[in-house]
Design a protein around this nucleic acid. Structure first.
Length: 728
DNA sequence: TTAGGGTTAG
């Protein structure tokens, strides 16, 4: 019997029925009829029915196909391959790969090149490359290492894990290299950020007589997008014209989109806009997302928003692009409210969306929202597969004041997933929380795990040392940078060192260090030094730093404030007044301070300094501030007014201090929370020493834990003490 | 074999 022409009892051809099958119900009916007709005992119709279920695309149909497979005595290679492909399509890559050993163990059917192609495609999406390499052993055993299709799949797998070395070795040893081999390799080099290697491979390809196709140029433009080289971008664009003429934007949307993205990533907005406009009515979702993120990267969030708003059917990527755009621009509240809109519109976020949202939560310090997003990640099973997502979660916890939660997650991450970024997030988090010694221990762990540190690792480490008073550790880490790790210290590292010496009172050493630097110190260094001079009341050194600063940045408000503070704190009122006058004459304003507090329900309330008069609870806040002042006096507190710049009378100075934005947020927090609840406050400037003292006293007077994040670090106030040990 | 959105520090 020729089963390809098998007919059911009513005369209908089985294959045609299978091909036209649209619903799962129809599929079950066809299967039932096959059984009635006795066709199911023959392998050919059975495997056709089987693939109908396997590739139908839902979990129920896949379950049914598993059932058929388990009841088949000797499944053939076609059935195994279909099963592997079906699991892969439903993103069940682990299960897809595990089918391979089952196949080898049970079947008499030998794996063919389709088997390996499907298996490698799933292996590329596993969290570890180990199974892929084990299966490559079988490829060699089966003598398929010269099969171009299998080799292409393996090269793709290697590139997915960033193992360009293995990919290139196989590529070069391959006896036959086709267009797909070259495209895969060029694309792999692009992803692995080897643009020059990708370019030279392109030359090899054209010299060998192969004609590039659209895929080649998509890969090539992606490779060159990171080079920031306008001329090269233009050359590639010209090559596209040379090979394909004026490309049909409808059919070549991929290619046009990639060329546009290359211009965007080179910062060539005008050319990108030109290409974008050629797309006219066929603007693909990808092109729109590119433009949105391109504008956002260029700091033009409003333009990005305009494009976003004009799109009727927004997909996950477009939503993510705009959310991430706002987050990167520091407009975290807007980012979070867009995420809420996205949820309401029914578009499902994916792991990349979550990364963008978590980064906004981290920026804002919004722990309730952040925790909700984390729970969503767990529920949607997004967590665990992706290192960047893990890094974003760790960073969110650290920046929202829960460093222990951050550490707990970090400790659960297996070694093969620990990247430089992840270590950096943990080390910087620990630094912000003042856990310098633990940061150094984590760094030692990093060295043992052979994860290479970069300049960001050292920024975090040196920062941690300077904020924990670890002068010797800092000194030796700084030395090890160039001597052991081949990283040349940059301005920011020198800045940390000046901070390290200055904060610990070694002002002379800090000054000598600045003078011995291999390049001219920038304003950040002088500001750090000036802060230390203020901390230790060294007017002479402070004057040197101030003079330098005013020369360098005559329009920067904070410098004037710091200088007049230092003069005021040492009662040089007259000079402080002069500075203020210069500031007024030049029309410079002090940066305005604000604080916000998050309540348990996740709502965030923001307070600008000295201003709560517009707040709906203004009367309660005023009376709470009065009560606070009373409690403070009872605790023997006298306001320190060294931070108040001007020589006004003492009472007025006290008033100005008592209206610092963090105090307003605290008063509001006490009013709107239950006893024993932790108060979480974020401030956009550094906390002043007076507020710091007040927060310590109030943590005892009200028996409250207060967690406060300022621009430089976290302060945990509890029982009259602060975690920074008054060192910040 | 195809493009687009993502993490740390400053």
């Amino acid at each position: 019997m020729f089963f390809g022409r098998a007919l059911l009892q009513d005369g209908r051809p089985l294959l045609m029925l299978i091909e036209s099958c649209k619903t799962l119900r129809q599929a079950y009916q066809i299967h039932a009829q096959t059984v009635v007709n006795g066709l199911h005992i023959h392998l050919y119709p059975l495997s056709k029915i089987f693939s109908l279920f396997a590739l139908f695309g839902c979990s129920e149909s896949l379950d049914h196909s598993r059932l058929i497979l388990s009841r088949t005595d000797v499944p053939n290679v076609f059935m195994w391959n279909t099963m592997i492909r079906a699991h892969s399509r439903q993103e069940l890559h682990g299960k897809a790969v595990l089918l391979y050993p089952s196949m080898i163990a049970q079947a008499r059917a030998l794996p063919n090149h389709f088997t390996f192609t499907f298996v490698f495609s799933s292996c590329a999406r596993l969290p570890t490359p180990v199974p892929g390499f084990q299966i490559y052993g079988h490829v060699i055993k089966r003598g398929l290492e010269s099969d171009t299709i299998v080799m292409n799949a393996f090269i793709h797998f290697c590139c997915g894990f960033g193992d360009l070395h293995s990919a290139q070795k196989v590529f070069e040893e391959s006896p036959v290299r086709d267009l797909i081999s070259f495209n895969t390799m060029i694309s792999g080099l692009a992803q692995g950020r080897k643009p020059h290697a990708a370019l030279s491979l392109f030359t090899v390809m054209t010299r060998s007589g192969l004609m590039p196709d659209h895929f080649t140029f998509v890969a090539l433009s992606s490779a060159c997008s990171g080079l920031n080289n306008y001329r090269l971008a233009k050359q590639i664009h010209n090559l596209v014209y040379m090979y394909f003429g004026f490309v049909d934007c409808g059919r070549s949307a991929h290619l046009v989109g990639s060329v546009m993205d290359m211009y965007l990533k080179c910062g060539e907005m005008e050319m990108a806009e030109k290409v974008f406009n050629t797309l006219q009515n066929v603007k693909s979702s990808a092109a729109l997302s590119c433009m949105v993120s391109g504008y956002a990267r260029a700091g033009k969030v409003e333009l990005a928003r305009q494009i976003f708003d004009q799109v009727d059917e927004k997909d996950t990527v477009l939503w993510t692009a705009i959310i991430s755009g706002y987050s990167q621009a520091g407009q975290y509240t807007e980012a979070l409210s867009l995420y809420k809109e996205m949820e309401a519109s029914g578009i499902k976020p994916d792991k990349i969306t979550m990364v963008a949202v978590l980064s906004a939560c981290a920026g804002l310090g919004a722990i309730t929202f952040g925790q909700r997003v984390y729970n969503q990640c767990l529920k949607k099973r997004l967590y665990g597969q992706d290192v960047i997502l893990i890094t974003a979660i760790v960073d969110m916890y650290a920046k929202c004041g829960k460093i222990h939660a951050a550490l707990e997650i970090f400790h659960g991450v297996p070694n093969y997933q620990r990247t430089t970024h992840l270590f950096n997030a943990v080390i910087s988090g620990l630094a912000q929380h003042g856990h310098g010694k633990i940061a150094v221990l984590v760094f030692e762990e990093m060295e043992v795990a052979k994860v290479s540190p970069d300049e960001i690792t050292f920024t975090g480490l040196l920062y941690a040392c300077s904020h924990s008073g670890l002068v010797e550790e800092g000194r030796s880490l700084f030395k090890s940078m160039s001597q052991m790790h081949g990283i040349n210290p940059q301005m920011k590292h020198y800045c940390c060192m000046v901070d390290l010496f200055g904060r610990n009172g070694n002002l002379d050493e800090a000054y000598k260090f600045i003078q011995a630097m291999p390049f001219e110190a920038n304003s950040v260094i002088w500001r750090s030094f000036l802060s230390s001079c203020k901390l230790y009341g060294d007017v002479e050194m402070g004057r040197i730093a101030s003079t330098k600063l005013l020369e360098m940045e005559p329009d920067h408000g904070a410098r004037y404030v710091l200088l007049s503070n230092i003069l005021a704190s040492t009662k040089h009122w007259e000079e402080a007044g002069k500075v203020r006058k210069v500031m007024e004459e030049r029309g410079i304003q002090k940066p305005s301070g604000w604080s916000h507090i998050e309540l348990l329900d996740g709502t965030i309330h923001q307070f600008p300094a000295s201003n709560y008069k517009l707040h709906p609870q203004k009367e309660e806040i005023a009376s709470k501030l009065g009560e606070i002042n009373g409690r403070l006096r009872a605790a023997g507190y006298a306001p320190s007014t060294v931070n108040v710049v001007f020589d006004v009378d003492e009472e007025e100075k006290e008033m100005i201090v008592s209206y610092h934005s963090e105090r307003l947020a605290l008063a509001f927090g006490l009013l709107n929370s239950g006893p024993g609840e932790v108060l979480r406050i974020m401030k956009n400037l550094r906390i002043c020493s007076d507020c710091h003292l007040v927060f310590k006293l109030l943590s005892r007077a009200y028996e409250r834990e207060i967690i406060m994040r300022d621009t430089t670090r976290f302060h945990h106030f509890k029982n009259g003490l602060c975690s920074c040990k008054d060192f910040w």
